[in-house]
């Protein structure tokens, strides 16, 4: 399966004539069992692709919500092997919803790149996004993921110019992640008018679906992006919903699923 699971999902979305909704959660936030229940619940709320963060001590591209999520996860003992274990357990009950891991390079290097790619494929991971690994440094990781059949999903950004774009989308598969604002995750709102032409360029250069993320918080924003992109990604808003539940010492899962459902519905009806 692996990358084919992503291709199948985006193929079906294209057939239905709608954009997908990608939900981000951090593995182990606030503990592994809660994450497993979230993963199991998200598909039923209309989530088309799950992005599962694996924590890193120094998340340089993330704003405060995901920084805090990573700290909660690390405090609970979450690791990259632990994240793969969550995917393995999720796959026992769901063979269709694609899962993309998102994080930073050092835990992957520490695991050993080749072994990581093999184990990720075995666990049922379909794609990997590594924030601090630009194409110039991605050779060994791209080779390993290719051999394992897992998609390496690249990030294109507002600073990626026309000259650079071909290199950025080379050796990428599954989809391309367009970072809609120059900044950290969850910080400022994306401007849908500026996003549309950028998405068109990335789509043309890559021949792949384009998911847009960073700066989408509300159902309205998600719908606006869903009208111009192939998928909308929401992370910090879901992580905030979880953090609120944790802070109030109650089960955070229902609130996160409710937030995800509202976003998914907005994305589904955006082009209607």
């Amino acid at each position: 399966m692996t990358v084919e699971r992503l291709n199948a999902r985006f193929g079906r979305l294209a057939g239905e004539g709608r954009a997908g909704f990608v939900a981000y959660v951090m593995a182990g936030d606030p503990d592994a069992e809660t994450t497993l229940r979230l993963l199991q619940g998200l598909a039923g709320q209309g989530v088309d692709v799950i992005e599962l963060g694996f924590p890193f001590s120094d998340p340089m591209a993330d704003g405060p919500p995901i920084q805090r999520a990573a700290l909660r996860a690390l405090k609970a003992g979450m690791t990259l092997p632990g994240t793969l274990d969550l995917v393995r357990r999720f796959r026992q009950g769901d063979a269709e919803t694609p899962i993309v891991l998102m994080g930073y390079l050092n835990p992957i290097l520490s695991y050993a790149t080749d072994r990581f790619a093999e184990d990720a494929a075995k666990a049922g991971v379909d794609g990997v996004i590594v924030v601090d690994c630009p194409p110039e440094e991605a050779g060994p990781l791209a080779d390993a993921l290719d051999r394992a059949g897992v998609a390496l999903i690249r990030l294109a950004t507002p600073t990626t110019d026309a000259e650079r774009l071909p290199a950025v989308v080379s050796r990428t598969s599954g989809f391309v992640y367009y970072v809609s604002v120059a900044g950290v995750t969850g910080a400022r709102a994306a401007d849908a008018d500026a996003v549309a032409p950028a998405v068109a360029k990335v789509r043309a250069a890559s021949g792949l679906p384009v998911a847009v993320g960073f700066g989408i918080r509300t159902p309205e924003q998600a719908a606006a992006v869903a009208r111009v992109a192939d998928a909308a990604v929401v992370g910090s808003a879901l992580v905030d919903a979880l953090a609120e539940g944790v802070a109030q010492k109650r089960d955070p899962v229902p609130k996160v699923l409710e937030t995800a459902r509202a976003l998914a519905m907005a994305v589904r009806s955006a082009r209607a």
Binding site: D132, E136, L155
Partner: peptide
């Protein structure tokens, strides 16, 4: 040219910063 001292160095930054 890639900023390498043997196996060390390089440019491991987010894509937003890479052009800069």
């Amino acid at each position: 040219a890639a900023g390498r001292f043997g196996d060390y160095g390089g440019r491991y930054v987010a894509e937003t910063l890479m052009p800069l």
